[in-house]
């Protein structure tokens, strides 16, 4: 089981945390938590869903514990900005650089937005599975993805403006 899930969990953790060391630690801690909680697993959901739920909670606590000081999540008020700035949409851009920026921005989203975006785009889960993993409604998943993309756009525009990678 660890062999099957570790690579998937690592990819998920890496995208959510944006740091390979933290991702490796989070995977290790997730597997320990899975092991400890396995006797309590009652099969109310798929094993994968249950393991991902533990992973998402572990990653969230990692982000709160270690990144709190450096993360400032974007607010809804910032969204107007992305609607108004049209110019740079047509700009030619270095694809690799843009990918790296985008990947870094995922780690700067709020924990739930980052989890929803990562589960949807990287892990290939659908609304229903994500709702089950995040213990929320299907509508809320749609909203998290919607807000997550909007916030990514704001964050990307900010990093481009500051010339950050």
């Amino acid at each position: 089981m660890a062999k099957e899930f570790a690579p998937r969990l690592y990819r998920h953790a890496y995208r959510s945390l944006g740091d390979s060391h933290l991702a490796a630690e989070a995977v290790q801690e997730t597997l320990v938590r899975v092991h400890r909680s396995l006797p309590d697993f009652r099969g109310e959901c798929a094993l994968g869903t249950w393991i991902y739920r533990i992973a998402v909670n572990t990653i969230t606590s990692y982000r709160r514990r270690r990144h709190n000081h450096s993360i400032s999540f974007v607010g809804t008020g910032d969204i107007q900005y992305i609607i108004d700035e049209e110019g740079d949409l047509e700009e030619a851009f270095d694809r690799k650089l843009e990918c790296e920026r985008l990947a870094r921005c995922i780690a700067k989203l709020s924990p739930r937005e980052s989890a929803a975006i990562t589960l949807f785009y990287m892990d290939g889960y659908g609304y229903k599975e994500i709702a089950s993993i995040l213990e929320t409604s299907v509508d809320c998943v749609g909203l998290l993805l919607h807000r997550g993309r909007e916030h990514l756009r704001v964050l990307l525009a900010g990093t481009r403006e500051r010339g950050e990678i």
């Binding site: 660890a2 062999k3 899930f5 570790a6 690579p7 991702a23 490796a24 290790q28 597997l31 320990v32």
Partner: peptide, 8 residues
């Protein structure tokens, strides 16, 4: 990561 996961 794989090695430590497997030992776990």
């Amino acid at each position: 990561v794989l090695a430590s996961a497997l030992s776990e």
